[in-house]
Amino acid sequence: MTSNTSTDLRQAAEGHRPSAASRGVYEYVVLSAAGLFAIISLYFVGSIVWQALPAIRHQGLYLLTGTSWVSGGATPALSKFGGLSMITGTIETSLIAIVIAVVVGTGTSLAINLLLPSWMRTIAATTVELLAAIPSVVYGVWGMLVLAPLVISTVGPFLNSLPGGNAVFGTVVAGQSLLLAGFVLAIMVLPTYVAISREVIGAVPHELIEASLSLGATRWQTIWKTILPTGRVGLLGAGALALGRALGETVAVVLVIGQVNQLNFRPLQPGVTLASWIASQWGEAIGSDQMNALFALGALLMAASLGVSFISTRLVSRQRSLVNR
């Protein structure tokens, strides 16, 4: 908008429309930087898909439905690369993470916007932001050396002692498990979710809140019937953004999930995710057909996370235009 008005002003002053020839060196330099990034992005997508193609050709659907991961070594025809455990593991850990992050994050954003005295709001918001400044490998180390023993000694036995606990959660093998990975991921994506949801909740028009309160609604009724419905598109976008982060997180997951390639649906048992499998198999895969299979998992991860990320940006900007209207 700004540059529009200023360009109009300039055009009026000079009395002619700017042509391509009136672009100076500066405009070209800036444009070429932008063009370079566009090329890098295309090349990024292209090169990962390109390296994935041989594996897709040889393994076909087995990449999505198979569960064994065996390298044929010198005879690539014997190689079997199935990604089902990684796909389910990614979905399971991300779901656990997103459920925890959305529940805790929404509560946190509500508390920051509606409950805390104003001088504490910035402090609380900065504290949550600081969670994002801690590198993911630190969370991984913390989860592996501090939380995993806790799962063995306390959390696991407790969940197993619940009625039907063994059947639902599975027995504790090591502390490293799908549940622990989901929990650590929840902490890691919480700042992402809170940053957006805090903005969304803060942008709910005051007239709406006041109208609800003046009709005699309690604080919770105002939250549940007015604030959350007004912000639901944006909150959905925030959740999708956090989901995108959870899908692709690598090093922390490698350290807390146990890295066992098997199909597991019980949260206390170990598993793998797409990203963690790429990182842990990389050393032995380089230069072989296994590397292409890892690129294929990467391509799958890329499709999922870029899709989720694209959707979330759309949702968040739609919420912004809804409120600003």
Partner: peptide, 19 residues
């Protein structure tokens, strides 16, 4: 480019390693 940028911000970092 704005859409590409917003999408690339969310790209998993392990993919940058592959790239």
């Amino acid at each position: 480019l704005r859409i590409i940028t917003a999408t690339m911000v969310g790209a998993p970092s392990i993919l940058m390693g592959l790239f």
